[in-house]
Nucleic acid binder design. Structure first.
Length: 490
RNA sequence: CGGGGUGUAGCGUAGCCCGGUAUCGCGCCACAUUUGGGAUGUGGAGGCCGCAGGUUCGAAUCCUGCCACCCCGACCA
């Protein structure tokens, strides 16, 4: 186990917090619920952004930027939307501070805003207010805009990366001429997210739809991807909403269609956030530290020289220079840690904690033998390999590690997804082997709520690829035509 | 907002019940020896003991008030 990191078994929650802090991903800020994302953590976000941004552009989207502040009145225009967010909004009421004459800085009461400003919890309102000016005809559609931004939601309870008061995300906001087109867009973006999370974060997900209870405030349908964490709790990793004409009606966004008739515009919105970093940490890591999938690791290969004298280091460095050039040509990021202020063992521990997928250790013995020691983070195995052909081997190993991490997570998800048919079994599983529980539900919000109240488990989603199957609701015994996925969730 | 906990050096802590010049570990600095899994020795620096009052000759310790953060719940991505 790594120093200063409590074991996963002992306290999963604490283990997660320790990892985030010790691996240098983030730290607490002076403001409750906010976090400082440190360079190592932020570089993962940058990688995520880079990949997603390409995926968005390949599906026809463009980036724009809308303001942080939203007039309060905008929030009263879509009733269910305000219900959803009213309780967690930061509000700007003044625009100036002043010295009170006794050395205290106070809010200047003379600088009160005529209309309060809301720090965006999400941008549907400001964007749809804007789209009103952009759309007159079907020829103006579709609008396929994404923005990378920060948002603020004044949550009661926060957790590093998983739920912070301010977080970074992207939010796509599209406008369409028809419902069908908007639904296609909603589903397309859900699939983009699922591909990204599975292939880059190496985390298998369930694609599904939310029930009415869990739906986004203002949406007709919320699609989601749900991932399973190592403690058996579910984590919503991304959402894509079909908003219908709700926001168009709220902001009076009409267009003339091909039949020369006035109609409201159809909308979608979709987003993923820095929460994905939390998912990444929780899903793959172990007691020694992070286990990062190579495709998102800020450092893919670290080279640690082992030497007694300066000339040995020079000898090793000369070899590493060539290796580094070969790896860079293959787009593999390498760090050569030749600090003489830390001993090799300390470096090994540090890079394990930080989840660097591959470690190359080279000493004089290796230089004589033409070998290196190659260590994998995911399996914690080491082998001595020839220097010849090393860069090709590293390239192949990185791919193998990516696959292995995914397969391991997939196996975990499969083993912890269980079909249950009675409420007793349902409750027993939640306590004894938490995970995804596939069960029949009568389709009513009341039943869902009662199950939540009694067990803390919620319906994570109705899987998109669900097979229809006759059954009885685990709570009420009423007839059901398909199973849904329950779990306790983050 | 309810429940629990914690504020003492950069980090983690002891001391508090029973008041008397603040403990230990990690880290940091210097030098030396070290370097194939978290080095060792010697020396050194670093503290408004969360804040404000009060009691007292004397407060980290007792009393009052306040503040902050963490954890658990309800709310949520």
């Amino acid at each position: 186990m790594s120093k200063g990191v409590v074991s996963k078994e002992e306290d999963y929650s604490q283990w997660y917090n320790d990892l985030v802090i010790k691996a240098d991903m983030a730290e607490y800020s002076p403001v409750k619920g906010c976090m400082i994302i440190k360079p190592y953590g932020y570089s993962i976000w940058e990688k995520m952004q880079a990949v997603l941004d390409v995926m968005f552009k390949e599906t026809g989207h463009v980036n724009a930027y809308f303001p942080l502040f939203i007039p309060k009145s905008f929030f009263s225009k879509e009733a269910s939307h305000v219900d959803g967010f009213a309780k967690e909004c930061a509000v700007v009421t003044h625009y100036r501070l002043k010295n009170d004459g006794e050395g205290n800085i106070i809010v200047d009461p003379d600088a009160k805003l005529e209309e309060e400003l809301i720090v965006r919890p999400t941008s549907e309102t400001i964007i749809w207010n804007t789209y009103k000016g952009w759309i007159q005809s079907y020829r103006d559609l579709p609008i396929l805009v994404n923005q990378w931004a920060n948002v603020v939601r004044w949550e009661m309870r926060t957790r590093l990366f998983l739920r912070t008061t301010e977080f970074l995300w992207q939010e796509g906001h599209t406008a369409h001429a028809t419902a069908d087109e908007a639904i296609v867009e909603t589903e397309q973006m859900l699939n983009v997210y699922a591909d990204f999370v599975e292939n880059w974060l190496a985390l298998p997900v369930i694609r599904g739809k939310k029930t009415a209870n869990e739906r986004f405030a203002g949406a007709l349908d919320t699609y989601c991807i749900e991932a399973l964490m190592q403690d058996g709790k579910a984590l919503q990793a991304g959402t894509s909403h079909f908003l219908g004409q709700n926001f168009a009606k709220a902001f009076d966004v009409k267009f003339t269609n091909r039949e020369n008739k006035l109609d409201y515009v159809w909308a979608t919105s979709w987003g993923v956030s820095t929460r994905l970093i939390g998912a990444l940490i929780m899903a793959h890591s172990d007691d020694a530290g992070l286990v990062l999938p190579p495709k998102l690791a800020p450092i893919q290969v670290v080279v640690v020289p082992i030497y007694k004298h300066e000339e040995e280091l020079e000898n090793i460095a000369a070899y590493v220079k060539g290796l580094t050039a070969e790896l860079k040509a293959k787009n593999i990021s390498v760090k050569f840690d030749k600090r003489d202020t830390h001993r090799p063992g300390a470096k090994f521990a540090e890079y394990e904690l930080k989840g660097v997928p591959l470690r190359v250790a080279i000493g004089s013995r290796d230089m004589q033998n033409g070998t290196v020691e190659l260590a994998r983070r995911d399996t914690k195995t080491k082998e001595t390999v020839n220097q010849e052909g090393l860069s090709a081997k590293i390239e192949a190993l990185l791919e193998e590690i990516q696959q292995n991490i995914y397969q391991k997570a997939l196996k975990f998800k499969t083993e912890n997804t269980t079909e249950v048919d009675t409420y007793d079994e349902f409750k027993r599983m939640l306590d004894e082997q938490p995970g995804f529980l596939s069960a029949h539900w009568d389709g009513s919000p009341e039943t869902e709520q009662q199950i939540k109240d009694e067990t803390k488990a919620t319906i994570r989603c109705i899987p998109l690829d669900n097979k229809l199957e006759e059954g009885k609701c685990i709570l009420t015994g009423k007839p059901s035509s398909q199973r849904v996925i329950f779990a306790r969730a983050y």
